[in-house]
Design a protein around this nucleic acid. Structure first.
Lengths: 197, 197
DNA sequence: CTGATTTGTCTACGTTTGTAGTGTATCTGC
DNA sequence: GCAGATACACTACAAACGTAGACAAATCAG
């Protein structure tokens, strides 16, 4: 028996490195050679852990989605209704450096998913789950009379999604205009608004 | 004297073709060979009109911005204040196929501008002009007592920008969820809101 | 018709890409 | 300590990229 290696751990590390490279210079910067070097390997070494670049990219994509999912789940915790919705919204916004650079990865994946059906389907699935969760919390908040606006649930959910996607973009391309303070204010105003008739 | 050619017209045509290719498959699909073929030329023919790919891409980028600028200017026309703002907002939203696919190009440029200082500066300039124009109209609308909300102008402008950017993204990656109807409703609700105290 | 000049084609070159193949070093179980 | 399997480095290769240069074709002035 040869050297024993935790393959899953190695894969995690390689995905970490790929993530970092995309953060720094987009997908363009994430070449197999560059990833291998940054991970401390030589040219062809990644092949043992990811059969092809597509698979590696897909794994990195998956990481982005599961990271967001975990971040939201952890924030929501045992809360429910309006407070859960609030925590979800603030948690998904690019309000610190880590989440802003994560938006860089998201941007790359948005573009890639437009020419890769597998990735696109996966993202639609994620979107469906995310929106479904928000619907759930809004429903409960309405039942508890925490939300009183006449605006339909579907519109509320969509508004959050658009604000969030827009904030991710603008934090990258125009952070001087769309400041964190403003982005927080959007959510503040939004929540102040929906608790009223 | 040889064949006489309108160079500007040729450049427009080449930019058209580049635009179309980016629409279809992102920047990845817009190779010099592909552009030349789609424009009806052979491999190296573009060199007479664009010295390098960077220049061609920059010209296409410029087209995207000026297209939006023209679209807005034409819509606003001689109007002013609230009505001008309203027309601007609806005009910039991806509410038809043409504007949705234009969002595809915008997405490509957002990503590219993150690793190209020239393009980034140009986009920031555009953003500044766009936001400035909205500020102008909001100011006049307030003077005419058309807008009564206590929300600061800067926040109103930023909200429009985020909704717009988000709508552009979601029209591409999740049109099943973020429908045109919903996107229109966001603006309807927004304008119904700001005319009240 | 002739000739100068631009236009566009074609070929080629140097890079960079993803990936396959080969060999060597390394480590574990016996 | 030995044998066998694994891990990684290294080289190589085909494909695709942007771009440069040489050549042929086309066109208008005279």
């Amino acid at each position: 028996m040869p050297k024993v290696i935790d393959h899953d751990e190695r894969r995690e590390h390689i995905v970490d490195v790929t993530w970092g490279l995309i953060m720094g210079g987009g997908l363009e910067a994430a070449t197999m050679r560059e990833i291998a070097t940054a991970a401390g390997f030589a040219n062809g070494a990644l092949k043992r852990y990811f059969p092809s670049k597509d698979v590696l990219v897909e794994a990195t994509f998956e990481r982005a989605l599961s990271m967001m999912h975990k971040h939201i789940s952890a924030a929501v915790a045992d809360q429910s209704g309006l407070e859960a919705l609030r925590v979800m919204c603030y948690g998904a916004m690019p309000l610190d450096t880590k989440r802003i650079t994560a938006g860089r990865v998201l941007l790359a994946f948005w573009e890639m998913s437009l020419s890769n059906k597998r990735l696109h389907d996966r993202y639609v699935e994620h979107l469906k789950a995310w929106r479904g969760l928000m619907h759930e919390h809004i429903k409960r908040a309405r039942a508890a009379d925490e939300i009183k606006t006449a605006i339909p649930d579907e519109q509320l959910v969509d508004e959050i999604v658009l604000i969030n996607a827009g904030a991710n973009i603008m934090s990258l391309v125009g952070p001087k205009f769309s400041t964190r303070k403003l982005q927080k204010q959007h959510l503040d105003t939004f929540f102040a608004r929906i608790v009223q008739p």
